[in-house]
Structures are given as structure tokens and as C-alpha cells.
């Protein structure tokens, strides 16, 4: 299988006051198309930073990242945004829905940004798939946490992404709701054949993935293929 994400000798340093803080150091790994991939580690280990860098949300200091065949370091901010819009999906811990938009409008945002002709129709189909077809006119403030995350899920898949990044997708949900959301995530992922990258604390959730990368202090401590693969 072709590699959809290839990370080479990645290093990221932040400046805090007069001190330099190395968040990621010498990180190398790759993910193949259709693979499910978990990044785990304790708080402050650099998981979310790594996810952000892989998705082109920040600039790297050293090393290189190839995403969907594009070297991110050669792209400017707008080119990276275009790449995300066409090939990347996102799910966040705190849902990140636009408060002024209804559930349906939130789902259609990536398609609207593309200028897709049937954005509303496609978004409605997805919303129905996540079980919220009858709540399409509701605003985020009128939905529960689980419902909001399902809207976010529908939004993440709306542009039919090649790769989907999920940052602690169950972090703000109770166990039961979290399980339902994860099932939905994996079902949709299988249906659409998307590559899935999940950042999580939850080792049970990590075990559901084909590949697990464990970080500690900004370095890879374990890079292993899970039993389910």
C-alpha cells in the first residue's frame, strides 16, 4: 500500500520566555492508506502538537512531512489549507462547531468552502447517517455533547477525506456516549476507506487501531503494530 503520511526526523521547539522547549524530537514514522493509527502518551508528551504538524496546522522546525504525496514544507499556508479542504478531515475533543450555524450548516462548511454544488444535500445525507437528520435545524447550544460530536463527525467526513485526524474524540464525553461515537467513527471510516489518525489517552481506544505510536517527553518510545492488524 502507498504511504499517505510520512514523517521524517521531525523536531519542533517552542520558545517560552528566554527558554527553548523541545516538544518533539527526532520523530519518524509513516502511515499507509486505509490504516488506523493511534498516537498515545501522557499529558505534555507532544501528541497534539504532532497531530497538528502532520495536518499542516503549524510549521516544522526540522525534518519533513509528506501528506497525501505533498511535502508540507514546500507549501504555503493557503496551499496547506487547500490540501486539508480536499483531503483531510478533523475531529476535536471540544467539538469546535460554529455557534452561529445549525447542525446542517456546520456539516456543510467544508463543502461550502470548496464551492461544491450539492453541499446541503450531501451534508443532510451524512447528518442522517449519524442519526441527527431530524435535528438538522438545531444550533450547537441546543444539542448535547454526544450530539455535537456526531455533528462534528459528519462534518469531518463531508469532504470525503483521504485521512482523518481525531484529537481525543471522546475526551469530553461520558463512557457510554463515547463508545457510541467511536463505533460511529470506525463504521464511517470503514465505509469510506479513510485513513484514521487518533490522538488519545484511552488505551482501550488505542487498541482498536492497527498501529500504535507511544510518545514520552517528545520522543517515540514505542512504534508497534497492534494485534488487530
Amino acid at each position: 500500500m502507498a504511504k499517505i503520511l510520512n514523517v521524517r526526523n521531525l523536531r519542533k521547539t517552542y520558545t517560552s520566555g528566554s527558554k527553548n522547549l523541545t516538544v518533539l524530537d527526532d520523530i519518524s514514522f509513516s502511515i499507509e492508506e486505509g490504516e488506523t493509527f493511534a498516537i498515545v502518551g501522557p499529558s505534555g508528551s507532544g501528541k497534539t502538537t504532532l497531530l497538528g504538524l502532520c495536518a499542516g496546522l503549524d510549521e516544522i522546525d526540522e525534518g519533513g512531512i509528506d501528506l497525501c504525496g505533498e511535502d508540507l514544507s514546500t507549501l504555503n499556508e493557503d496551499q496547506r489549507a487547500l490540501l486539508r479542504n480536499k483531503k483531510v478531515g478533523f475531529i476535536f475533543q471540544d467539538f469546535q462547531l460554529l455557534p452561529t450555524l445549525t447542525a446542517l450548516e456546520n456539516v456543510s462548511v467544508p463543502l461550502e468552502l470548496q464551492g461544491a454544488p450539492h453541499a446541503t444535500k450531501d451534508a443532510m445525507e451524512l447528518l442522517t447517517k449519524v442519526g441527527l437528520g431530524n435535528r438538522h435545524n438545531h444550533y450547537p447550544s441546543q444539542l448535547s455533547g454526544g450530539e455535537q460530536q456526531r455533528v462534528a463527525l459528519a462534518r469531518a467526513f463531508s469532504n470525503k477525506p483521504s485521512i482523518l485526524f481525531a484529537d481525543e474524540p471522546t475526551g469530553n464525553l461520558d463512557e457510554e456516549t463515547g463508545e457510541k461515537v467511536i463505533k460511529l467513527l470506525f463504521d464511517l471510516n470503514t465505509e469510506m476507506g479513510t485513513t484514521l489518525v487518533i490522538v488519545t489517552h484511552d488505551l482501550e481506544l488505542a487498541k482498536l487501531n492497527q498501529h500504535v505510536l507511544r510518545l514520552k517527553g517528545g520522543k517515540i518510545v514505542i512504534n508497534e503494530t497492534s494485534a488487530i492488524s
Binding site: 495536518a55 496546522l57 489549507a81 487547500l82 490540501l83 480536499k86 478533523f90 460554529l98 467544508p110 470548496q114
Partner: peptide, 14 residues
């Protein structure tokens, strides 16, 4: 900024 960053993340151009 949060709105703009979110749109950026979802692929909005400058």
C-alpha cells in the same frame, strides 16, 4: 480568531 482558525483547519483560504 477561534472561528477563523477553525475555518482555516477545515481548509478555508486566506
Amino acid at each position: 480568531i477561534r472561528e477563523s482558525v477553525l475555518l482555516r483547519t477545515l481548509g478555508a483560504q486566506s
